[in-house]
Amino acid sequence: MTPAELRAFCLGFNAAVEEFPFGPETAVFKVHGKLFALSALDAEPLKVNLKCEPENAVRLRAAHEGVVPGWHMNKRHWNTVTAGGPGAVPDALVRELVEDSYDLVVAGLPRAERLRLDRP
């Protein structure tokens, strides 16, 4: 996966926005003000921090060398996923994990906001 593909995929979700609160090198993707993906898009290899259910996070780390506890994040709820370069997780799995992260964040939003996103 390329940085442009990752950016386009993250911004393809309803109400997703890209911000740079930590400086120009770190893209933060949010939905209704809540972070669902974070990546230094110019870094080699390309990595992205994604929210994950704790049980699934442990399973993914055991199954893929490109999935490790979230860097600078709550290690129980976040994974750092290698999305490009050596040791990269397959693109299809990266897309699935990004969507899972988005869905987890949306699930924590107030009901009215979820309904506006067509995700009850």
Results as ranks from 00 to 15, higher is better:
residue 81 V to H: 06
residue 83 A to F: 06
residue 89 V to M: 05
residue 16 A to N: 03
residue 78 W to T: 11
residue 25 E to L: 01
residue 79 N to F: 07
residue 97 L to G: 13
residue 97 L to T: 11
residue 31 V to L: 08
residue 54 P to V: 03
residue 109 L to V: 00
residue 110 P to C: 00
residue 91 D to A: 15
residue 98 V to N: 10
residue 18 E to G: 11
residue 33 G to E: 09
residue 82 T to L: 04
residue 64 H to M: 01
residue 62 A to T: 01
residue 13 F to I: 02
residue 69 P to A: 10
residue 112 A to E: 14
residue 17 V to H: 01
residue 38 L to S: 11
residue 94 V to R: 05
residue 106 V to C: 10
residue 24 P to K: 15
residue 73 M to T: 09
residue 53 E to C: 04
residue 59 R to M: 12
residue 14 N to M: 07
residue 14 N to H: 11
residue 36 F to K: 08
residue 69 P to K: 08
residue 28 V to E: 03
residue 53 E to Y: 03
residue 35 L to W: 11
residue 75 K to L: 02
residue 77 H to D: 06
residue 17 V to W: 00
residue 98 V to M: 03
residue 71 W to V: 08
residue 44 E to D: 15
residue 32 H to I: 01
residue 59 R to E: 13
residue 89 V to I: 13
residue 55 E to P: 00
residue 84 G to C: 02
residue 98 V to Y: 02
residue 111 R to M: 06
residue 38 L to I: 09
residue 84 G to I: 09
residue 48 V to S: 06
residue 68 V to G: 01
residue 62 A to L: 09
residue 49 N to K: 03
residue 57 A to K: 06
residue 15 A to Y: 09
residue 83 A to M: 10
residue 31 V to D: 05
residue 18 E to L: 04
residue 30 K to M: 02
residue 95 R to Y: 01
residue 113 E to R: 14
residue 42 D to M: 01
residue 103 D to M: 13
residue 51 K to P: 13
residue 100 D to H: 13
residue 31 V to N: 04
residue 103 D to K: 12
residue 86 P to T: 01
residue 62 A to R: 13
residue 48 V to E: 09
residue 50 L to Q: 05
residue 55 E to L: 11
residue 105 V to I: 15
residue 90 P to I: 07
residue 103 D to Y: 00
residue 102 Y to N: 14
residue 68 V to P: 01
residue 65 E to A: 14
